[in-house]
Amino acid sequence: MVPFDFTYHRPSSIEEAVRLFERLHKQGKTPLYYGGGTEIITLSRLNLAFADAVIDIKHIPECCVLRIEQNELTLGAALSLTSIEEANPFPLLTKTASEVADRTARNQITLGGNVCGQIFYRETVLPLLLADCHVVIAGKDGLKQRSIHEVFQQRMRLEHGEFLVQVKIDLSYVSLPHAHTKRRKQGKVGYPLVTVAAIKKDERLHVAFSGVCPFPFRSKTVEEQLNARHLPIETRISRALQYLPKPILNDTEGSVEYRLFVLMNALSDILIPLEEG
């Protein structure tokens, strides 16, 4: 139950979507781009989100693309997580996506919605960060392509009126050795205590995290510590933990101390085989 009214718009092109946003905004409205809608509906119930117009991007062809072409994987932002899992073009992304919420919910949750969401776990961004992907963003000046590292700092830094259209992943990344683990407070469905994803590229580990801090991240300093191969892995992990961004979450999922304990084990579980593999 959405306790306020909005108009629903279904543009069929990027340009139309952007124009709509601008027009609605000029009319004094608060439009939101709308993907799977699960987060908007969830948060509006609790008065944590508001819109008086929603622009559904699921009918924009570019947002629904799943294509491999010229050594590049393109994923539309409006693809549902389960459709990506089933096509499985990027096995690490499949793993990460398949641990988000539950399957029925993932039939609705979109890649773009998860990456750009307010709920701060945004776990599907982890493989994207690891794969140094590029994102295609639509705005009033048309399309632009940027490195994810440029645009995603803790959250997607989209300008007013912009939306995520696609992510583009260099194919050389998708088949790299990888690992993923999601540790929860208890049970198999729910938010993470910690989620860690990693790939090995040119003998270097790329590692990204969710659930540790109130934002997902990949940190150069953390990776440097973890890649200091002259040291035993336990030492590297405990050093890496010193360089985590702040704050470490201390919430209903778990205390700071316990999170770090779980993180330490999670890291050794996925990094040792990856390194040896």
């Binding site: 799977g36 809608g37 399957r103 919910a105 039939n107």
Partner: peptide, 13 residues
Amino acid sequence: KTPIKSCMMLAIE
């Protein structure tokens, strides 16, 4: 043919 949580989808969708 896809299971959907109907509380999370707008009728208009």
